[in-house]
C-alpha cells in the first residue's frame, strides 16, 4: 500500500435532510476514515451524521454517454404537470 485508499465523505447537516457529498480523504480503514472525516469536514457542527464510502466502490454514469443515457426522459414532457392545460376557473388541481 503506497498510499491509503480514497474515501468519499457524505454529511447529514441536520435531521430531516439527506446526506450530501462534501469531499474526500485518504484513510487506511473505515474507522479512521470516519474519524478523519469528522476532523476535516465537521469542525463547526456542520453535521449530525457522517457516511464514508470507498471511492473505488462508487459506480458512476459515463459523462461521455450522458446524451444517450438520459435520452429516454427527453421526449416525455407529459410527465410534468405543466404539460396539461386546465380550463379557467378550475381550482385545487
Amino acid at each position: 500500500m503506497t498510499q491509503w485508499p480514497l474515501w468519499e465523505v457524505f454529511v447529514r447537516s441536520r435531521r430531516g435532510l439527506s446526506h450530501v457529498h462534501v469531499g474526500s480523504l485518504h484513510a487506511p480503514d473505515a474507522e479512521l476514515a470516519l474519524r478523519n472525516a469528522r476532523d476535516v469536514y465537521t469542525r463547526r457542527q456542520e453535521g449530525v451524521s457522517l457516511w464514508v464510502v470507498p471511492s473505488a466502490e462508487i459506480v458512476a454514469s459515463d459523462p461521455g454517454e450522458r446524451e444517450a443515457f438520459f435520452d429516454p426522459a427527453d421526449d416525455k414532457v407529459y410527465r410534468h404537470p405543466t404539460f396539461y392545460s386546465v380550463p379557467d376557473g378550475v381550482e385545487h388541481l
Partner: peptide, 25 residues
C-alpha cells in the same frame, strides 16, 4: 483552531486536485 483550519484547507484542496487524476503523495 486556526492552525487546524489551515490543515483542513490543505486537505480540501488536495482532495480537489486529486479529482484531476493526480495522487496526493
Amino acid at each position: 483552531a486556526k492552525v487546524q483550519d489551515e490543515a483542513g484547507h490543505g486537505l480540501y484542496l488536495y482532495a480537489a486536485a486529486e479529482t484531476l487524476g493526480v495522487d496526493r503523495a
